[in-house]
Nucleic acid binder design. Structure first.
Lengths: 104, 104
DNA sequence: TTGACATATCGAATATAATCGATATAATGT
DNA sequence: ACATTATATCGATTATATTCGATATGTCAA
């Protein structure tokens, strides 16, 4: 966990919102599932297109955001066919909370 | 507490180090006190010059950093004569930890 | 009240981030 | 094979952050 990179990833309104949405994907992405193969569900994350629609930024921007959050460790992704599903990396998020409490 | 501003303030190696140093000022600023008026001690914070020396950036840069951390809420300052002493705002830092645990 | 010192602010240069549309890549269905 | 769809990457533009030296402001001491 590289704190600076994580803090940078969190320093943006849209990215912060995405992270919060992914805490309760069923709530914030209700139509999710239409195109889901059976072996994938919310636990597998939410696909880029759904996130883009909600975030209201361009496709390239949301892709860039998700990639950078993943590099920071906040998200992880799984590819299923033509879709990439992103979900939170709760372990790293937990580490961050711990880091904040003990180191900062 | 405005999370985005706080995260931005934390997104810099030098600023993060300053914040950590101020957690144990006696340890990291041992010569502190030479020019301290009696009514001021470590609880009153560390002066800009001492922080600058340790941080190894220009005087204007450190002043800017401290100001921005204060605006974000991470620090607070007291002026004594010609010196400005900065110290951590533990309440806000606590709020941040709480925010991270519950909202993020 | 003048000189020296601590800090803040200003203005400018350079670096990094944000953001988009266009294009590339990869998977799917016909 | 080909058209369609989802996502990633590229290249460019604009906005914001970093960082400095120079200068201004405020304080103290002689």
């Amino acid at each position: 966990m590289e704190p600076i990179g994580v803090f940078k990833a969190l320093s943006n309104e849209t990215r912060l919102r995405i992270l919060k949405w992914l805490k309760e994907p069923e709530k914030h992405f209700p139509k999710q599932g239409a195109h889901l193969p059976k072996e994938v569900n919310y636990k597998g994350g939410v696909c880029v297109g759904d996130i883009q629609e909600k975030a209201n930024v361009s496709q390239s921007t949301v892709s860039h955001y998700l990639n950078m959050m993943q590099k920071a460790g906040l998200l992880e992704s799984v590819r299923h066919g033509q879709w990439t599903y992103y979900r939170r990396n709760e372990e790293v998020i937990q580490q961050l909370a711990e880091y904040l409490k003990t180191e900062i």
